[in-house]
Write a protein that binds this DNA or RNA. Structure first.
Length: 503
RNA sequence: GCUCCGGUAGUGUAGACCGGCCAAUCAUGUGGGACUCUCACUCCCACGACUCGGGUUCGAAUCCCGACCGGAGCACCA
């Protein structure tokens, strides 16, 4: 026996073996020719909750060199937002999720029709024209409705009429399950229904499959090997199982993850939509929302989200995702690329006398000198110079205080009023400020600055920024020193509009 | 109410299947300190958890039972 093999065998019996640390996602059960799917319903753009399903599916597809199908589940015409199809694809692209195939259920209605008919022909399904309340009552008592007793030709005839005669709510196709099942919703659950609501992509159609039916048909015909979805779908395994069995198909492996809540955030698409309509939110990308487009606008990197979702994994228990963790991952990604600038929030004037003429410079990034300098402006000798301080710094200063204007000089506060203060020049040396443990504050010049607006989830912050801010480009992420990271979203005629990322 | 599922530090996570190496991992956070012309970065130190009660066992975070807490489902939505 070769030495290598021997070592391997010995290792198997060592208890140390099982303590090897798992990295990344848990292994899949039967990972051969893996086919997965991400199946959102197109009622709006994707949010953080969707990101979990999308990313985890993507990671598994990559891990096993499998295939990921994007399946758009648009079989409830009343909940379809025509814009959503495009938005979902954009959001996935931003996330870096690669789908190898796109399936839109409203384009596959004929397949569902055909299979519903097949189930009727086989005697496994029937068309039920009972009033829904009446059926509900019978079902509670585990009793069959009159339609269940109809023969196959009769059912086929009624099925045809669903496409022409019956109105919405008048007929459904039901699967014959078992009236004795303890969960009433399992008993002869519906497969197809009529909706007269116009479908933006399936004009003229009025018969639609219900979720459990279309999902089963598609999972089967698309060769799904593994299904990763929220635990709210657990009961559906049982329902779908009936369909698999009637057709003689084998169901895929299922993995169900728990509910994901995000601190102080409502992820619900329908509630968001309502908020947009009433004007409470500015749009799908409102900074307060958990949509991916809102998060992107705030300069959060897709990789930060991916890492957070990998962290979270596929556990069954519910979790509460913390923004702090997400921000920490994001900071790690953007820190070294984010150049530094001064921005004063809620500017308050401070006039300084006796300063020498000088030019102010600072590094674009304190850890990378080769990135070069930025110019903070210049002043002339003996001029009374006006500076702005942020309102929080202004509030803290006291008369007689020794203060360091960062990258400039040291001053002493001579007088302080409600909205402005006067100071006199003392010295230029930073060391002196350090020795006196003086406060170091950032500033902008009174006459050479850029108007700035920062949009944050908490509201809008106005102020002034240093002149070199004119050089940055839309989409660039920078750090306003002692304020936080921001992303430039828009340059308007008179101001720069930033979105706040995090501290 | 009925039927399922879950509970490890503030948050997320590893360990659980196969009990001992776990006075419990890693990340984030928080507190303190060093560095720094930022409240960012970096470095150091500290803090902080097996929901509870029984049982099995020489030994339980891990197995069993119960309680409590949390969640999901109980649609002609997905």
């Amino acid at each position: 026996m070769p030495k290598e093999q021997l070592e391997k065998d010995v290792k198997q019996f060592e208890y140390v073996e099982k303590k090897e640390k798992r990295i990344g996602l848990p292994e899949l059960e039967n990972p051969e020719n893996v086919v997965l799917r991400f199946a959102p319903n197109p009622s709006g753009p994707l949010h953080l909750g969707h990101a979990r399903a999308a990313i985890l599916n993507d990671e598994y597809a990559k891990k096993y060199k499998g295939k990921l199908i994007l399946r758009i589940e648009d079989t409830d015409p009343s909940r379809v937002d025509p814009e959503a199809y495009k938005m979902i694809e954009e959001d996935l692209e931003w996330l870096g999720v690669v789908s190898h195939e796109i399936i839109i259920q409203s384009e596959r209605l004929e397949i569902y029709y055909e299979h519903a008919e097949k189930l009727i022909e086989l005697g496994y399904a029937y068309v039920c024209t009972c009033e829904s309340g009446a059926f509900y009552k019978l079902r509670i008592d585990k009793e069959a409705c009159p339609c269940r007793r109809n023969d196959i030709p009769k059912n086929l005839e009624k099925y045809k009429k669903m496409f022409s005669d019956y109105k919405e709510g008048e007929a459904v196709v039901r699967l014959k399950t078992d009236l004795e099942i303890n969960d009433p919703s399992m008993r002869d659950f519906p497969l197809m229904r009529i909706s007269e609501h116009p479908h933006p992509r399936a004009a003229g159609k009025r018969v639609y499959p219900l979720m459990n039916f279309s999902v089963t048909i598609d999972d089967h015909f698309n060769g799904l090997t593994h299904v990763l979805r929220g635990k709210d779908h657990i009961p559906n395994i049982r329902k779908q199982r009936f369909i698999y069995d009637y057709f003689g198909w084998t169901p895929p492996e299922y993995i169900h993850y728990g509910r994901l809540k995000v601190e102080e955030l409502a992820l619900s698409t329908s509630a968001t939509k309502e908020g947009i309509e009433t004007g409470e939110y500015t749009g799908w990308d409102d900074a307060r929302l958990g949509t991916l487009r809102a998060i992107a606008k705030r300069g959060i990197q897709p990789k930060a989200i991916r890492r957070a979702m990998m962290d979270v994994g596929t556990k069954r228990s519910d979790i509460n995702l913390s923004w702090k963790n997400l921000y920490a991952y994001n900071r790690e990604l953007i820190e070294r690329d984010a150049n530094r600038y001064f921005f004063v929030d809620g500017p308050k004037e401070i006039s300084v006398t006796g300063a020498p003429g000088m030019e102010f410079h600072a590094l674009l990034h304190p850890d990378f000198k080769d990135k070069g300098n930025r110019s903070l402006g210049k002043i002339k000798e003996k001029e009374t110079v006006k500076f702005y301080l942020s309102s929080s710094d202004f509030e803290n200063i006291k008369k007689g205080e020794f203060l360091r204007l960062m990258e400039a000089f040291n001053v002493e506060i001579v007088d302080k009023k409600e909205t402005c203060a006067e100071a006199k020049f003392i010295s230029r040396e930073l060391e002196e400020a350090r020795a006196k443990k003086a406060r170091l504050v950032h500033w902008t010049l009174g006459d050479n600055n850029v108007k700035i607006k920062v949009v944050s989830p908490e509201g809008i912050i106005n102020g002034y920024g240093e002149p070199d801010l004119k050089n940055i480009k839309v989409d660039e992420i920078i750090q306003f020193e002692r304020f936080g990271f921001v992303r430039l979203d828009e340059i308007t005629d008179d101001e720069l509009v930033f979105y706040f990322s995090h501290k």
